[in-house]
Design a protein around this nucleic acid. Structure first.
Length: 479
RNA sequence: GCCGGGGUGGCCGAGCGGUUCAGGCGGCUGCCUGCAGAGCAGCUAUACGUGGGUUCAACUCCCACCCCCGGCUCCA
């Protein structure tokens, strides 16, 4: 499965099988990815999913597709469990930081894209905020109402899931089973006036006793949109009623995406997306507790604070298949970073020896094909990485220039900045420069004791010194 | 309870009927180096949760069991 003829195979949650990807429009892909709720920092678990989506996009583009990639920003509230208190994550965040919900949304949206950029995640073609599309959502709910899919109870307008013959098809369970399982597993209080447990809110009324910061007028009363409507409405607005790919984390399968499908298909009678693709979770090793609710989360900034290159995390994500859980530990991150740095070292040394070549050896095309075959087989990045190591360490038939060129091609998908030199353009502090100079002098006079002493000193400062035929080189190390 | 995914050598992880059982990290030896580091050459552990079954052949399929993780209207 998967080959070099631009045939991409992807695992579709709808059919639970790898399928040949066939775009609706030749040469183009319309893709929607569920974005963040911007009430708090995104953690590295969130980012594993965004990295997976970025890889998907890059693989599509590598194959020559033009990708229209849409991502929403959820900036209006998802209720917490208790309907009586009616808390909203955005409003809770605002109280915590004594800011308005709008300030909170702007701040964390900005942070999100800053951190995404550090992971080399391409910015979506279109980023759309829920609060900019309230009118569209109201209009959409009216149309659903016109078709008889809604009913109004005390706290909002609901979607009647029993009216769809195949509600829940994404989960592999039918309507009855879903309702039973919800009942058995309920951790949250349901509004007893709901007709079915699977029914969900389209428009929620503001609480009567409190003033919300975010609320709008609607034909049904003052309130705010429900939890799933934004993605359906914005997806359709920017990609059409029927698009190619919809993706997100596996946690979205049973509720969010199931309800998106319900809302969409109820109205249009056609599939919202052809391929539903879901990324597995990043899980944490025993040594790491990430209490989401307690605010103890690991962010990209945390990794940097611990001395890691953010792309070491990207490398770690690439070592596992996107549909497998990946265990995060500091040790596994360290080993990923070691591997990444070594790879960059190889690239650097290959680049030092870029002899002129005229013809490409047949092996060149072979590697290119094998790479394409791996990534086109449901994004088999572990396989692509293994191929990369074989190329770098074992291949003798290719020139350094050819290897370099291949690695640069691969990096269009990996996005690991393989060509980044360890040294970069970073300026060292003057005292460090001075120490390096002194050590060089000591080495010239073969005063090894002094030279080694200074090397130890620098090491303690986090600088590793390497003597090479080309002169002294330094790099930072996580101590 | 229900749904889903797993248990692979010191660690992270591919593979999923039959070539030497990916790859990385770590560790070890040699070359190189003033010594290191990096790199190179080579090695490493005789791996596949347990018990059965199917098969000429199972880590890979089937059954049972044990254990782990995720989801079940906040969550990527």
């Amino acid at each position: 499965m998967g080959n070099s003829k631009g045939e991409i195979y992807l695992f579709n949650t709808l059919t639970r099988r790898k399928e040949l990807f066939v775009p609706i429009e030749k040469g183009k892909v319309r893709m929607y990815c569920c974005g963040p709720t911007v009430y708090w920092y995104a953690h590295i678990g969130n980012f594993r999913t965004y990295i997976f989506e970025d890889v998907l996009r890059r693989v599509l583009e590598f194959n020559g597709f033009e990708v229209r990639h849409v991502m929403n920003i959820t900036d209006v509230g998802h209720l917490t469990s208790d309907a009586d208190t009616g808390e909203d994550k955005m409003e809770v965040g605002a109280q915590r930081e004594r800011k308005t919900v709008w300030e909170i949304a702007d701040f964390y949206t900005r942070k999100f894209f800053e951190e995404a950029e550090r992971l080399n995640i391409l910015k979506p073609t279109i980023v759309c905020r829920a609060t900019d599309h309230i009118a569209d959502m109201i209009e959409y709910i009216r149309r659903l109402e016109g078709k008889g899919y809604t009913y109004v109870i005390d706290d909002g307008v609901y979607f009647d899931t029993s009216k769809l013959k195949d509600y829940g098809k994404l989960t592999g369970m039918d309507f009855e089973r879903l309702n039973e399982s919800l009942k058995a597993g309920a951790r949250v209080e349901f509004n007893p006036n709901k007709k079915h447990l699977t029914d969900f809110c389209l428009w929620r009324f503001s609480p009567k006793d409190r003033k919300r910061q975010m609320e709008w007028n609607s034909p049904w009363g003052v309130g705010f949109p429900g939890w799933h409507i934004e993605c359906t409405v914005m997806g359709m607005k920017y990609l059409g009623e029927h698009f190619d790919i919809h993706c997100g984390g596996i946690d979205h399968i049973s509720i969010h995406h199931t309800n998106e499908i319900a809302q969409a298909e109820a109205l249009t009678g056609k599939p919202l997306a052809n391929y539903w693709i879901h990324g597995a979770f990043l899980v944490f090793g025993k040594s790491i507790k990430m209490a989401k609710s307690a605010g103890e989360i690991i962010t990209v900034q945390t990794l940097v604070d611990e001395g890691f290159d953010p792309l070491a995390f990207r490398y770690l994500c690439l070592t596992a298949h996107y549909r497998s859980e990946l265990v995060f530990t500091w040790e596994s991150l360290q080993s990923a970073q070691n591997a990444l740095f070594t790879l960059r070292e190889h690239v650097r040394s290959l680049a030092e020896n870029l002899e002129k070549k005229d013809d490409k050896s047949p092996k060149f095309g072979e590697y290119y094909e094998r790479f394409l075959e791996a990534i086109n087989d449901d994004l088999n990045m572990p396989k692509a990485l293994a191929l990369t190591w074989t190329l770098v360490r074992e291949e003798k038939a290719l020139t350094d220039h050819e290897k370099y060129e291949l690695l640069m091609e691969f990096d269009k998908v990996f996005a690991l900045d393989l060509a980044r030199s360890m040294q970069r353009e970073e300026k060292l502090p003057p005292e460090v420069e001075e120490l390096i100079r002194k050590r060089e002098e000591a080495r010239k006079t073969k005063d090894w004791a002094t030279a080694d002493k200074i090397r130890e000193q620098l090491r303690a400062m986090g600088i590793i010194i390497e003597d090479t035929p080309q002169g002294v080189r330094w790099r930072r190390v996580k101590s």
